[in-house]
């Protein structure tokens, strides 16, 4: 009897450990976390939108601005072509993520490593684009101190970037485990949970891309 109890208690015993609902604990927790994150980003996005068009000085996101005292001209600061590319990169990382998950489910060790690595790489590429964007904005005269747009833009996209960074670290950890000892199909739930987080970060970007970059 005791052995049976121990076996069923082992978290690695099966892909679907027995719980009240038959669902995985961590997966419920991550969905609750995602629900909570909705409020986090809703607050950040609300602030961005509330302060939209209220900055007293430029540079502005969508229109040029001439400094009345120095007559220096600042062009509209958002770089839509570059950001469209980085948006595409992040969307593709989501594709790589689902492929990584399904490879782990199938027990396909080779593909799982490739796709986990690609997801992390695409995420890192997105971060690279963001780093480029931030530095070029600073060169063009927009910092978190400049105006309301600068504060709310950098903090909103910065927090999103921080989430991507955490996701990349998470992915690299999974990749490391996969390389070291291989992720078994039983552990697919761990990849699934990471994937849910990753896709959520992606959908947040879908909202930010439209609300911040495209709507003038």
């Amino acid at each position: 009897m005791a052995t049976a109890a121990i076996e069923s208690h082992d978290p690695h015993a099966g892909a679907h450990p027995a719980t009240s609902t038959g669902l995985n604990n961590t997966k419920i927790a991550i969905w609750a976390f995602i629900g909570s994150e909705c409020f986090f980003f809703a607050s950040l996005i609300s602030t961005y939108l509330i302060y939209k068009g209220r900055s007293l000085v430029g540079p502005f996101p969508h229109e040029a601005w001439t400094d009345p005292s120095t007559h220096q001209v600042f062009k509209a600061i958002l770089n839509i072509p570059i950001t469209s590319v980085s948006t595409f990169v992040l969307l593709m990382s989501s594709l790589a993520m689902v492929l990584a998950h399904s490879a782990v489910v199938r027990g396909d060790r080779k593909s799982s490593k490739i796709w986990l690595a690609s997801t992390a790489l695409l995420g890192a590429t997105f971060l690279g684009f963001q780093a480029y964007e931030f530095t070029s904005f600073v060169h063009e005269g927009l910092t978190i101190h400049t105006n309301l747009f600068g504060s709310s833009f950098f903090i909103l996209t910065g927090f999103h970037g921080a989430h991507v960074t955490a996701g990349v670290i998470w992915l690299l950890t999974l990749l490391f485990i996969d390389i070291k000892r291989g992720l078994t199909p039983d552990e697919a739930i761990n990849v699934d949970v990471c994937a849910l987080y990753w896709h959520f970060v992606d959908v947040v970007w879908i909202a930010i891309f439209t609300l911040v970059y495209l709507i003038k």
């Binding site: 994150e37 409020f39 986090f40 809703a42 302060y51 007293l56 978190i144 600068g150 504060s151």
Partner: peptide, 28 residues
Amino acid sequence: PIITVALTFLMLDRFFGTNFYEVSAGAD
């Protein structure tokens, strides 16, 4: 999460000089 964001803004304003609550920069 909402108070986290509000407190983060305040923290950034106090420590890093953002403008979230800086009325002279047009903040509400």
